[in-house]
Amino acid sequence: MNSVILQVASKYVKWLLVVFALIALYRGHNFPGGGFIGGLLVGLSVIFSSLAYDAQRARNSLKIQPEGYIALGLLTIFLSILPGVFLKQYFMAGVWTSIHIPFLGVIKLGTPFLFDIGVFFAVIGVTLMSFFTFSNIMKWK
């Protein structure tokens, strides 16, 4: 599918999707969205661009390989589990802190948010990995 329109469109749509995804991730705790939706959206964006060009190219343009995303996601999830044990005596307990960021105001950050980020990365990795494998181009290192 090397249609020019699609290629041009994909460039924008792709970034649009990624931005959407990040917003979904960030706002997920308060508005529709969250790690799953965000991760799936990013995956969709990469798939979209590879439909426009080809999968190999889309893959090369990735900064982190799918398995990297998976590992990153699992690690983040694991890290989000720990603070609860040490600070609240329960696994997975939410630990919150608020920080003040200029222009955005007070933001509450907590381990559930970290957990959501982990899910986000893991889902990206999973989507990409299965997609690339289906596209039959993936090589292990």
Binding site: H29, N30, F31, G33, G34, G35, M92, G94, W96, P112
Partner: peptide, 17 residues
Amino acid sequence: AYGQNVVNVILVDFRAL
């Protein structure tokens, strides 16, 4: 749990396991 989206809070906090 400091979240307005209950579904998401359930996913990442109440029922994170």
